[in-house]
Design a protein around this nucleic acid. Structure first.
Length: 633
DNA sequence: ATAGGGTTAG
C-alpha cells in the first residue's frame, strides 16, 4: 500500500510532524525500482547509510549499473562513507549480467575503501562463479573466507552444493553438504531441497520421497511448497503421475498451498501422459483459486491437446492466446508446430512457422528440428536436409537433434552412406553424438545390412565415453530377431543384464515377438511365464503377441486364458486387440471361439467396428444373433 | 546471497 504511505507522509507534513529517516527509507525502499525513487530521495532531510545503499540497490535493479557506481563514487555519501551493502548490490548485479570478473574487482575496491567484505559479499561472488561454471574458483574463494576474517555459513555451502548440482556432479553435492555438517552448521530447507533435486536427477525417486517425508517431519512445512514441487516434478518425469497426484493432495491436506508452479507441473505431467480430462479439471480448479495460468501452464495444455491429436483445438487455443495481444513465447509455437509435424501435417506446420516469422518472433533450433521431423515423417528427406541450411541462415546452429532426426530418416532406408556423411558433418561442426544418435547409426547398419561395422561403432562410442543403453541393445536385439538369429539375440539380452541395464518392456516385446514369429511358441510361453513370476513389468504387446500366435496355431484355449489375464491386469484393451484375435480364429475356422471373443468384447463395453462385424458375419451365423442381441448391423 | 515448472531426435 505504498501510495497510502505517501498520503500519510503528506498529512504528517501538513501537521508539521517530523518524519524520521527510517520512515523515509522505508518508503524509498518501496519505490526503488521506479523513477519515483528520486522524488522520495530528494524529500529526505537527513540521509543516512541506509538511504544511500537503498538508492544504489534501486539503480542496480533498474539495470542502471553505471549510475549506481557513479552515485556510490561521487555522491553525498562522503559524510557517512560507502557501505558494504551498496557494494554487494553492485556485485550481485554484475554477476547476474554474467560479468563475474567485474564483480570480483569490486571486492578489491571494498578493501581499498577500508571496509570489510561480509559473508554476503563472498556468497554473492561465490554464487556468481558457480553460475558461470567456475566451481574451482568458487571453492577457492570459499576457502579464503577465513583469511578475510569471515566464516562460510549455511548459505555458502548451499550455493556450492547447487554449483555442483548444475554441473551434474551429484556426488560432490553430498560431499559439500557433509563438509557443512562437519563444520557444525545446520542444514536448512534449501539444503534439503538441493539434495532432493540430486535424488530426482539421478532417478532415485524413492529416495527422494523418503527425504521429503523426513523433511516434513522435521517441521519444514511452512515454506515447503518448493521441495514438494521438486518431488512432483521428479514423479511426473518418471511417469509416476498417480503418486504425483496423491502427493499433491497430501500437500493440500497438510496446509501446503500449491502455487502456479506446483499446479503447472502436475498439469504438464497429466498432459504428457495423455490424461487431458484430468488436466483440464486441475486447470479449472487452479483458476477457481484465483491462480492465473501463465505461459508454462498454457504450454502444458497445448501439449496435452497435441498429444491427443486435437490439433484444431490446440490451434484454437494458441490463436486465442495470440489474440490477447501479448507476444508469445517461441516455445508455445514450437509445441503446436511439433504437434502438426508429428501428425504428418507439414503444410500446417509450415504455415504456422511463417506466422511466427511474420510476427517478428525469433525461432530457435527446436522449431526447425520439428520441421525436419515433419518432412521426414512425410518421406521428404530432401526438403528435411535443406532445413539444415535454413537453420544457419537464421544464424542458429543445428543441434545434435537436427542431425539425429535426419540420420534417422536415412537409417530407416538403410542408407548408411548418407548417415556417415551426416556423422562427419556433425563432427566437423563440433557436435558430439549421444546415445540417441548412436542407436540411429546402429539401426542404419541393421537395416542397411552392414552389421560388420557394428563393432567399430561400439569402439567409437567407447572412445567418446558414450555407454550403450537399453535402446542401443533393443535395436540390435530386434535386428538379430528379424534375421532369425535368436541365439545371439538372447546372448545380447544376457550381456545387457550383466551390464546392469534393466531391460525395458520393449526388450521383452522384441524377444517374445521373435520367438513367436519363428515358431518357438512354447519357448515364448515359458519366457512370458518366468517374467510374470518375477513380476517384471510387461507391455500389453508381450501378451497379445503370444495370444495371436496361439490363435494361429489353433490353440484357442491358451489364447482365452492369456486374454483374460490381460483384462485382469487392467490393460486398456481396444477393438483392435479383439479383432486381431477374432480375425486369426476365423481364418482357422474356429467360429465358436471367435464368437466367444466377440461376446467378451460386447460384455466389456467395447463397440465392434465394421471390419470385425464383416468377419464375424462371414464366418458364422452371427447376423441373426447380433440382431437378437439388440444391435443394429 | 541460496531451492521448483515448458518445446525437439532412437
Amino acid at each position: 500500500m505504498v501510495d497510502d504511505s505517501l498520503y500519510i507522509l503528506e498529512k504528517m507534513r501538513d501537521l508539521n510532524l517530523s518524519v524520521s529517516t527510517q520512515a523515509y527509507n522505508s518508503i524509498l525502499y518501496n519505490f526503488r525500482e521506479t523513477d519515483e525513487m528520486w522524488d522520495v530521495y530528494k524529500a529526505i532531510e537527513s540521509k543516512n547509510e541506509h538511504t544511500y545503499s537503498t538508492v544504489v540497490d534501486g539503480l542496480c535493479r533498474q539495470q542502471k549499473l553505471e549510475d549506481a557506481v557513479s552515485f556510490l563514487r561521487d555522491s553525498e555519501w562522503k559524510d557517512t562513507g560507502p557501505s558494504v551493502v551498496s557494494f554487494n548490490s553492485i556485485m550481485s548485479a554484475y554477476c547476474k549480467l554474467g560479468f563475474v570478473d567485474t564483480a570480483k574487482s569490486f571486492l578489491c575496491t571494498v578493501l581499498k575503501c577500508g571496509l570489510v567484505p561480509s559473508v554476503h559479499s563472498h556468497n554473492i561472488l561465490i554464487n556468481g562463479l558457480c553460475l558461470a561454471g567456475s566451481i574451482g574458483e568458487a571453492l577457492e574463494l570459499a576457502g579464503d573466507m577465513s583469511k578475510h576474517g569471515v566464516e562460510p555459513d549455511t548459505v555458502t555451502y548451499n550455493i556450492l552444493a547447487k554449483g555442483f548440482h548444475l554441473l551434474g556432479m551429484i556426488k560432490w553435492v553430498w560431499e559439500v553438504i557433509q563438509q557443512m555438517l562437519d563444520k557444525g552448521l545446520t542444514p536448512d530447507v534449501i539444503t534439503y531441497t538441493i539434495l532432493l533435486c540430486g535424488h530426482c536427477q539421478l532417478g532415485n525417486i524413492d529416495k527422494g520421497l523418503r527425504l521429503l517425508k523426513d523433511m516434513l517431519s522435521r517441521g519444514f512445512e511452512l515454506n515447503s511448497v518448493i521441495p514438494c514441487s521438486v518431488m512432483l516434478s521428479g514423479l511426473c518425469k518418471t511417469g509416476r503421475i498417480e503418486e504425483a497426484f496423491s502427493l499433491f493432495y497430501r500437500m493440500k491436506a497438510n496446509g501446503v498451498r500449491p502455487d502456479i508452479v506446483a499446479y503447472s507441473i502436475v498439469i504438464h505431467g497429466l498432459c504428457r501422459l495423455g490424461e487431458l480430462d484430468l488436466a483440464i479439471w486441475l486447470y479449472d480448479e487452479m483458476c477457481s483459486k484465483r491462480i492465473l495460468p501463465n505461459s508454462r501452464t498454457h504450454g502444458a495444455m497445448l501439449l496435452g491437446l497435441c498429444r491427443k491429436g486435437m490439433l484444431l483445438e490446440a490451434r484454437a487455443l494458441l490463436n486465442s492466446l495470440i489474440s490477447t495481444g501479448c507476444t508469445l513465447d517461441i516455445i508455445l509455437y514450437n509445441i503446436v508446430i511439433d504437434g502438426y509435424a508429428k501428425s504428418g501435417c507439414i503444410e500446417e506446420a509450415l504455415e504456422l512457422f511463417r506466422g511466427v516469422i511474420e510476427s517478428g518472433i525469433t525461432p530457435n533450433v527446436a522449431t526447425f528440428n520439428s520441421l525436419i521431423h515433419g518432412y521426414c515423417k512425410t518421406q521428404n528427406i530432401a526438403e528435411a536436409r535443406k532445413v539444415l541450411d535454413v537453420i544457419k541462415l537464421y544464424k542458429l546452429v543445428p543441434s545434435v537433434v537436427s542431425y539425429t532426426t535426419l540420420m534417422n530418416a536415412y537409417a530407416n532406408c538403410g542408407d548408411t552412406e548418407k548417415v556417415d556423411e551426416l556423422r562427419r558433418e556433425m563432427k566437423a561442426n563440433g557436435i558430439s553424438p549421444t546415445n540417441f544418435t548412436y542407436s540411429v547409426i546402429i539401426k542404419g547398419l541393421c537395416i542397411g545390412r552392414k552389421l560388420e561395422k557394428y563393432n567399430q561403432v561400439l569402439r567409437d562410442m567407447a572412445s567418446e565415453g558414450v555407454t550403450p543403453d537399453q535402446i542401443t541393445y533393443n535395436t540390435v536385439i530386434q535386428h538379430l530377431c528379424r534375421a532369425k538369429d535368436l541365439f545371439r539375440a538372447f546372448e545380447l539380452f544376457e550381456e545387457m543384464k550383466s551390464r546392469n541395464l534393466e531391460p525395458t518392456p520393449a526388450t521383452y516385446d522384441i524377444l517374445i515377438n521373435g520367438l513367436c514369429f519363428y515358431g518357438y511358441l512354447k519357448d515364448a510361453e515359458r519366457f512370458l511365464c518366468s517374467l510374470r513370476e518375477r513380476d517384471v513389468s510387461l507391455s500389453k504387446f508381450a501378451y497379445t503377441t503370444v495370444i495371436k500366435a496361439h490363435c494361429v496355431k489353433g490353440d484357442p484355449e491358451m489364447a482365452v486364458k492369456l486374454f483374460l489375464q490381460v483384462l485382469d491386469r487392467g490393460f486398456d484393451v481396444s477393438v483392435r486387440d479383439y479383432s486381431a484375435v477374432i480375425n486369426r480364429l476365423c481364418r482357422r475356422e474356429l467360429a465358436k471361439e471367435a464368437k466367444f471373443f466377440f461376446c467378451l468384447m460386447l460384455s466389456r463395453g467395447v463397440s465392434p467396428d465394421l471390419d470385425i462385424c464383416r468377419v464375424m458375419i462371414k464366418s458364422s451365423d452371427v447376423l441373426g444373433w447380433t440382431i437378437k442381441a439388440g444391435l443394429l448391423p
